[in-house]
């Protein structure tokens, strides 16, 4: 029991250390070379000094850093400099987070659900040709970069419809040429793109397939089947931890991929916001989003580790 508590405490401490390191890296980076960003939004040296005093840039790095953490606990990330000048960052990112969640959660479900379906198909005896064709095309599709896959999907819908519209066969559909409104088709295509592109699907598929193969070959699984015991009762808990590990390792990919997918599909989520903010050198907004996203990834890593501790008695004692 003491060993267990010690293991958990060590993992939580590592998580906190990562959180501190990540935030310090972000703040130090943004303060080390403030010239570029501040020069772009100020004209005279007086304006510059005024802005620096207002933003606390004239104080020491450590003091700025502690001040920043104090604000984080009050969920205060300062004000946007350029993108939506003067608005609170915390207010700006709320709705954007919701739009991105609507994109990421179905995409994760699609990637992992799809991967398990494909593995079930690969493990099914027979249909060697069909299995091979489906397997290779899944890997081939997955190699395509996100922006290209999104582009191809959009064109696959728009080009034929445009041809029909030109001939006067049909009217202009509401979703044509990706309007700013949230249409179902737009979200569906974005989810498919995010779930498959940039190597995501093939990577998850490869990892999970090797985990499933290893598990099914284990002696206790073989003997369970030989005794006529329930396959699923032993399969599901044992595949859970490796799945969580793959999920945690992939979470960062999804959060990064969102930038491209939201740009291509014109969705105003977190990804679009950090991209515009980075382009306009809106440093507080970029810092806030980067910190939140990095904290989320670090937290997922911690949960993955803790789940492993909870399920696997061998890890508890180490």
């Amino acid at each position: 029991m003491r060993g267990l508590l010690f293991t958990i405490a060590r993992k939580v401490a590592f998580f906190l250390a990562v959180l501190i390191g990540v935030s310090f890296a972000i703040i130090a980076l943004s303060r080390a070379v403030p010239g570029d960003a501040i020069d772009q939004i100020t004209d005279t040296p007086e304006q510059r000094a005024q802005l620096e005093a207002m933003l606390g840039l004239d104080r020491s790095l450590v003091s700025q850093y502690l001040h920043w953490w104090g604000n984080v606990f009050r969920l205060d990330f300062g004000e946007s400099w350029v993108l939506r000048q003067g608005e609170r960052v915390s207010v700006l990112i709320g709705p954007a987070i919701w739009k991105t969640t609507k994109l990421i959660v179905p995409a994760l479900a699609l990637t992992f659900g799809g991967a398990f379906l494909l593995i079930a198909l690969f493990r099914f005896d027979g249909l060697p040709w069909i299995k091979k064709v489906i397997g290779s095309s899944a890997h081939l599709l997955s190699v395509i970069p996100l922006f290209l896959l999104g582009y191809l999907l959009i064109m696959a819908f728009n080009v034929p419809v445009y041809a029909l519209m030109e001939r006067g066969v049909i009217g202009r559909p509401a979703w044509f040429a990706l309007p700013a409104e949230e249409t179902l088709l737009k979200y569906a295509l974005a989810v498919v793109t995010l779930a498959v592109g940039n190597g995501t699907l093939s990577d998850v598929l490869l990892h999970l397939e090797s985990e499933v193969t290893q598990l099914v070959r284990q002696e206790f699984m073989v003997s369970t089947r030989a005794r006529g015991g329930s396959f699923w009762r032993h399969f599901v808990p044992n595949i859970l931890v490796p799945t969580m590990t793959v999920f945690v390792n992939k979470a960062g990919f999804f959060l990064g991929g969102v930038v491209v997918v939201e740009y291509v599909f014109n969705i105003n989520g977190i990804g679009m916001m950090i991209w515009s903010a980075a382009n306009l050198r809106d440093v507080p907004l970029v810092i806030a989003i980067t910190f939140l996203v990095a904290a989320l990834v670090a937290f997922l890593h911690l949960s993955g580790d803790l789940l492993q501790v909870a399920v696997d008695p061998r890890v508890r004692e180490s």
């Binding site: 590592f14 250390a17 990562v18 390191g21 990540v22 890296a25 972000i26 980076l29 943004s30 070379v33 570029d36 960003a37 960062g252 990919f253 999804f254 959060l255 990064g256 991929g257 930038v259 491209v260 950090i274 991209w275 903010a277 980075a278 382009n279 050198r281 809106d282 440093v283 970029v286 810092i287 989003i289 980067t290 996203v293 990095a294 904290a295 990834v297 670090a298 890593h301």
Partner: peptide
């Protein structure tokens, strides 16, 4: 291990955007 954990905490594309927004 700590340094690599710091790097992996950042989603790759977002880290690149962060640095590019600050440094030319």
């Amino acid at each position: 291990r700590y340094v690599t954990a710091l790097i992996t905490a950042f989603p790759r594309f977002i880290l690149i955007l962060l640095v590019c927004s600050i440094v030319e």
